[in-house]
Write a protein that binds this DNA or RNA. Structure first.
Lengths: 254, 254
DNA sequence: TCAATCCGTATGTCCGGACAATGTGACTTC
DNA sequence: GAAGTCACATTGTCCGGACATACGGATTGA
């Protein structure tokens, strides 16, 4: 029986531009990722050893390793000592990131719309103060929004933001998502702690989402942090489970 | 007005053991993490420049950088070019990992218990085959369990596993969690894709969880992958929202 | 035929140095 | 006094090498 020589070492054309301001390791990582995405590097195929790869590209081994490591961190490659580096044979391509409901909907082709119900400054309650790490009763932004898709209510969003971070104009909030506004204001979102649960809708909640009282609702609370660890947003959301569910990817920390 | 000299550079006692098999960068990273956890390194405090730190420890700068980088990846430190490296001033300490319900409960001091309802081999349905990446109608493990805490039903867990990965004995399944069994079998869990939603309980589901028909249920579907990208588990779970909610941390990929 | 051993290979760790890019603060200039 | 300029500090990128460690297959032996 002929052995189906699986996992062959792939020879592909790589090159780097030393005059570019883009770091060399990043150029290499991008090309490798593109090759994986494009299918040139098939799952299970070996990448060829680092030393040889480095000399072929005119790079040093640390630089090549840095490129490979970044893809390993992304979950695209696996290193095996004594074996080599190979492409993960995963069905899942891109791990989901910290997502914005607005972006998710837009990407899915559902024409999202936002109706701003409240947009004002209020004193922080104990709960909000604890979440945002600000003094109790200090002023914070309070935003209440109804998110619609195809004209149908999909979620009720209540958010709190620390003062001074951002100008929040109702018109902008109706035109795009909160995260996009924050990024545009130069805030680098880094991580978020979320709690997802479910409960029966109260009459008021049911009314807002055009559900019936007692209908199941999906609830989410989230505190978002920027790259310095500051809390930049606290939100309490309720979703209609028939219209929305959370989908994401968790990674195990090595 | 006296300037409150914030963000001082901290001098702390670090040392590495060169005879240890533990990598030097890892030793340093552990000590730094412990100092942050312990409060010796307070949020906002500067770490001191890498060169000086390296010479003080008798290490090279790349080694020190590797240690620091691992903590930056964990979200404990922030690097700023021209400024230095400082401790993130975050309330959140440990980002949650891919979690096991059993471990979560045990950690919370709720005496978890498991009742195995089904444990057999079955042909894979189209849905299961797609999730696990195995041929349709090929044999897979099917496990149905009821998870209890303090004797009260908390969740109904239905899982499918590809064949040959693991011996699944009912006694073991009742004594511990599935993830722990998989790890013990040498499987390195890497990532999981989850979908969380909510719906009203059907009469059969209500019966299993001692809820009433129509009560809100939290639902979760998950495919777990090992470090080579193989799907190693597919599960469909339903939780009583009064007893359980999902809490986790999402990271933005740089 | 099967098991233990050896060895090549590839990644893992570590070093010491070099120059570039950037943010901060002090200085100078208007 | 305010704005622009410059030097300094610190991280970012990159190099070329060295040895350790672990995996797999081939060789050897029972």
């Amino acid at each position: 029986m002929p052995k189906p020589d699986a996992d062959p070492t792939v020879q592909l054309e790589l090159s780097v531009d030393r005059s570019s301001p883009v770091p060399l390791y990043f150029q290499l990582a991008q090309q490798l990722e593109a090759a994986i995405e494009h299918g040139t590097l098939t799952p299970g195929s070996l990448l060829g050893n680092e030393i040889e790869l480095a000399s072929r590209l005119g790079l040093s081994r640390p630089t090549v390793r840095q490129a490979i490591q970044s893809l390993v961190d992304k979950g695209l490659l696996v290193r095996r000592r004594g074996v080599g580096t190979q492409v993960v044979h995963s069905q899942v391509k891109r791990p989901l990131e910290l997502s914005s409901l607005y972006d998710d909907l837009e990407l899915a082709g559902q024409r999202p719309a936002t109706k701003v119900l409240v947009n004002k400054m209020v004193p922080a309650s104990a709960e909000v103060a604890a979440a945002l790490g600000v003094p109790e009763d200090s002023e914070v932004h309070r935003i209440e929004r109804l998110r619609l898709a195809h004209g149908e209510p999909m979620a009720y969003l209540c958010n709190f933001l620390p003062p001074g971070l951002l100008d929040l104009e109702t018109a902008q909030l109706e035109a795009t998502g909160l995260y996009r506004l924050m990024r545009a204001a130069g805030i680098t979102l880094h991580s978020a702690r979320q709690t997802i649960g479910a409960r029966a809708a109260t009459p008021a909640e049911a009314e807002r989402l055009t559900e019936e009282a007692g209908a199941p609702l999906l609830t989410m609370q989230r505190v978002t942090y920027d790259d310095t660890g500051r809390a930049v947003e606290y939100g309490t959301h309720t979703y209609r489970p028939s219209r929305y569910s959370f989908e994401f990817q968790l990674l195990v920390r090595g």
